[in-house]
């Protein structure tokens, strides 16, 4: 059984403007040791998919419709907040985008980290020996993410660290409980390009060493190509193509995946030849029938607009949700 499986997940969010359909049947599986890149445009539901795995989307205003999330035998959406806390920080770690805002500015790094370590150990907060052990673990973990003199730096405040260093601290906090699954939501987007590479290398070295499954949410197809074993492409709240990274990148079968890969500049790209995709994402407030990509798709025909295309299996777990899959654009 897969470590994580998301089946036909539906999520809507109630707002003043009405009900927005954010997730429209997300299907995704992740095995131990797999690193899955979840890519797609801004607003397609990548982050909410990631947050749903830890049940961190507040409902209301969000409402889960059909679908389920299973993590190692746990029915996530059926779990209480207490049951979820037993998973968070211990079995599931999370890293977010902006390291400058994800650490509490008024508390020492050590204070925040030791609290997380204590939770991951399941220890009594007030026990002296547990406090001491949490401190030891924090120091060891900080050294592992490349923070020198960790012993002293525990007493520093977030503003005394650079952006890259702060993300290292957050990585250390997310991994201190030795989770089975790490959800990394654009972990390097807010960093300098030169620092991005360092952080990603560090993250993936640890992940491979500890055999942690990763759901990497990103815009950066280059990162996916370099680091991920699997990839899932998301469009308007649905995974439209997924599979082993090389299969999807070498043989993109959904018109949207093709367009996405076609929009990546390479060294051979000449001035003015970079291709974009016309049109814009569908309005989540409007009801929709058929394939959500149809309005922007060059291959779309009448039957595309009638029913939601089921996922077709192209072999080796390469799935694509397009009735015209394989037809060359």
């Amino acid at each position: 059984m897969a470590l994580l499986s998301i089946e036909n997940l539906h999520l809507s969010i109630q707002s003043f403007d009405g009900e927005a359909q954010i997730l429209n049947g997300v299907d995704l599986t992740l095995e131990r040791g797999e690193i899955c890149g979840l890519v797609g445009e801004t607003g397609c539901g990548k982050s909410l998919t990631g947050l749903s795995v830890s049940k961190l989307v507040s409902s209301p205003p969000a409402r889960y419709g059909q679908g389920a999330i299973h993590f190692d035998g746990h029915d996530i959406l059926g779990h209480s907040e207490n049951a979820m806390r037993a998973l968070r920080g211990r079995r599931i770690g999370m890293i977010f985008q902006d390291p400058t805002t994800n650490l509490n500015p008024l508390f020492r790094i050590g204070e925040q980290m030791i609290d997380v370590a204590l939770h991951s150990m399941g220890a009594n907060r007030w026990s002296r020996s547990a406090q001491r052990e949490a401190r030891e673990r924090s120091i060891a973990m900080l050294e592992r993410v490349g923070i020198h003199d960790a012993h002293n730096r525990l007493d520093d405040y977030p503003h005394q660290f650079s952006g890259g260093m702060r993300q290292r601290v957050l990585i250390a906090m997310a991994l201190i409980g030795r989770p089975d699954l790490l959800i990394a939501d654009e972990p390097t987007t807010a960093l300098d390009v030169s620092v991005q590479a360092q952080i990603l290398k560090l993250l993936f070295d640890i992940v491979r060493e500890d055999n942690i499954a990763v759901l990497l949410i990103t815009h950066n197809l280059g990162v996916v190509a370099r680091l991920c074993t699997h990839v899932a492409v998301m469009y308007a709240g649905r995974i439209i193509e997924r599979g082993i990274m090389a299969d999807v990148f070498n043989n993109p079968s959904h018109p949207y995946t093709k367009a996405l890969l076609g929009a990546v500049p390479t060294q051979k790209t000449r001035k003015g030849t970079l291709q974009g995709l016309g049109g814009s994402v569908p309005d989540p407030y409007l009801p929709h029938e058929g394939c959500r990509f149809a309005p922007r798709c060059a291959l779309a025909e009448a039957r595309c607009r009638e029913a939601v295309p089921p996922e077709a299996d192209l072999g080796h777990g390469h799935g694509v949700a397009c009735i015209k899959a394989g037809v060359s654009a």
Binding site: L56, T101, N104, H119, S120
Partner: peptide, 24 residues
């Protein structure tokens, strides 16, 4: 954001509110 991180890493609601949020 840091409240989301604190929740995502499993800190209890009471610890988050009475320690981390209160001081801010």
């Amino acid at each position: 954001d840091f409240v989301l991180t604190e929740r995502a890493l499993g800190l209890s609601q009471s610890l988050i509110i009475l320690k981390y949020v209160l001081r801010n």
